[in-house]
Amino acid sequence: MEKVIEKAVSKISELAIGATSANGGTREKELKIGGQSAMPFLHFEGSMPNAPVVALEVWDTVPEEWPLIADEFKDIVNDPIKWAQKGKEWGADLISLRLESCHPDNKNNSAAYAADLVKKVLAATKLPLIVIGCGHPEKDQEILPAVAEAAKGEKILLGMATKDNYKTIVAAALASGHSIIAESPLDINLAKQLNILVSDMSMPLERIAMHHTTGGLGYGFEYCYSIMERCRLAGLAGDKIMATPIINMIADETWKTKEAKTPQDEQPNWGDLHKRAINWEIACAAGYLQSGADILVLAHPESIKQVKQTIGKLK
């Protein structure tokens, strides 16, 4: 039987995260994502020069909604520096620091605090860095410019820029040489529009990653998968605006689900909570890998190990 080969007319853009000393930073390596000319792992249709990477999710406050992690990581969840340092030991390619404590409903920590913490994390680990704000559109406009300035020269990936606050955040990223995550609410048309708005500010498309606010496994997973897949197919078919790499915040979406929280004595049929919760994170990551994920942000060391192994076998 004849093989049906799809040939892409264009490539996904290649985004670099992290500056080494040769490039004015202090990271141990520069990570590249994107650059594919085929759907994930279809090596017979095109090339995949950069395998997807795994980031360790680190919070600057105890993630109360993640009881299992909070318990299991009790020695590190109170200390973002120690937590970030686990990235290397656990085999993560980079760190994703979430400034949750800055949220007005949390500790409402200041921009100065955020800048200081980012500097400390940069000193404590040499892995490339992603910094995510607190998710409050107005507050992120205060803290992320301070973060960008504090990390100047390190080529971090800064997020999330949304339609409501992208101007301030993109301007800050541009001023300090960082890349940006453009976040839209699981809507391919809005994702494209935001990428255009961001690139209209002279941010090169090669410095934009998309976050589609994809859910965890069991929470609209098929729809998320299909949005990512359509996006990637368009990017390969010549739509440069849609050809930016994709990030999935899998840890954040997994550890708050009831599947990762409900003990076995409450749901005997669901099996052991610990095993189930980790598998929930791994399964979600494995799915998104197939639909075009370039950065998978994970929390558990076992998930990181398993997902890295999966990528290793497929790449």
Binding site: L190, I196, L197, G238, D239, K240
Partner: peptide, 13 residues
């Protein structure tokens, strides 16, 4: 793929 700035998007290709 549609977006509000579809004319601009096409011209950026």
């Amino acid at each position: 793929i549609y977006c509000d700035s579809f004319l601009n998007a096409y011209r950026k290709k």
